[in-house]
Design a protein around this nucleic acid. Structure first.
Lengths: 224, 224
DNA sequence: CGGATTGTTGATTACTTTCAACAATGGTGG
DNA sequence: CCACCATTGTTGAAAGTAATCAACAATCCG
């Protein structure tokens, strides 16, 4: 069991990885019949739905979000290939989930996971590790929202996307509105801030959704 | 094991409870020699310290925080009696912890916990439950920081304190600066917003640290 | 009592939002 | 294949909210 912990420590910091269901599904060119397809902007589940299933992203990007009484949307997180979302402690989902792009998802039955955990110490250790990683992510996000101005928020956001891809060239899967709702800004501010970064030569805006990080150091200074 | 899950579901939503160490310590009038005392504003651990110990609050209030390069402080969370803080996935603490008031804390050895978890399915289930509860808390905080104005932030903050105590009369253990750093505001804005709430008759400011919620409904409307 | 800390209040500034208009893009059907 | 329309993104001007700078009041300790 402690070996499982040690192993976890070696995994990438923010990865949302669970060992179930079996990995093969994401490696096959033709995903088995157990995967589901979701069109861009379609809902996967809604806040308050029974959390019977959680999902692993096989391809595409997913957002989890919450709508407040006055109609404003808060995006809690984006989930990329290989990541897990929708796993809850409570019986209901606390956020809605929607497809940012066309997606292939692998739905996993929650009770299956819990039964596996009951039988298998390693499985539950993974559950725990998953929860703690998500926690780190959520805390980092709180810090970003609480302490930073628009420029810093965008800086961190772009650096994260770039780091995830391991490349200075970023293809944004989400709209400006998505970015705004994730960073606690408005579309206009996101747009203006990106324009400002381009004017300063920190990034190059090839197309609206295609950005190249020109000066990573300066971006990191901003994001500090 | 599933019984343990069901039990967890009955516990208060945001409680940060772990079964270790044994509960008796918090019930004795004279805590045993294993507890530690911390004076107000003293540091418990610093960001980057080895996360050898985590802590349970026996009395007092603790804040976990992070200092950014430009000297600004972000308070991640406040921990009250019975709650656990400083439990990490990584080997180092990601935040500093400080005593908001004079505190009595019960330090717990991390490896002790992990060994217990390795041997005991219920123990690790509690670990998992703890992590997921903290996650809910962190996500709610992100939402608050990302989507709300000063008035709404203060509304939610005061309602939480009031709910925790189960009383409309609140004794604030923290300074305005603490509140500001927790809500992503400045001291001045916190002070002004509280004054505004008082002028509107929503709260009554007995002393700076002693607030009575006069009109809970209106406060909830603000906080929505 | 006196000094330091904490909290309040006022005036000004800065940043972000809001409102508005327009440009670019992408998908669809003729 | 192109034109058209809806969606998405950008930019400008004005307004609003919170931050900053500054001064003062209240409170807490020694």
């Amino acid at each position: 069991m402690l070996a499982a912990l040690a192993h976890s420590a070696l995994m990438p910091r923010n990865a949302a990885v669970l060992p179930f269901p079996a990995e093969p599904a994401q490696h096959t060119r033709q995903p088995g019949p157990q995967v589901m397809n979701f069109a861009q902007d379609s809902g996967i589940y809604e806040e308050g739905d029974d959390a019977t299933y959680f999902y692993k992203v096989v391809s595409g990007v997913v957002r989890t979000c919450h709508f407040s009484a006055d109609g404003r949307r808060h995006i809690d997180a984006f989930y990329h290939v290989g990541e897990i979302f929708g796993f809850e402690l409570a019986s209901e989902h606390r956020f809605s989930a929607e497809a940012v792009t066309d997606c292939v998802l692998l739905p996993c039955h929650r009770h299956g996971m819990e039964e596996a955990a009951a039988l298998d110490g390693v499985a539950i250790m993974h559950l725990y590790t998953y929860a703690m990683r998500q926690l780190d992510r959520a805390r980092a996000h709180s810090q970003l929202l609480g302490r930073c101005n628009a420029m810093q928020k965008l800086g961190v956001f772009l650096l994260e996307l770039s780091a995830r891809k391991g490349d200075a060239e970023i293809e944004l899967p989400m709209t400006r509105q998505d970015i705004a709702d994730y960073l606690g800004l408005t579309v206009e501010t996101v747009s203006r801030t990106i324009a400002h970064l381009e004017k300063d030569g920190v990034i190059c805006l090839m197309r609206a959704r295609h950005i190249v990080v020109k000066d990573r150091d300066r971006l990191e200074d901003l994001a500090a």
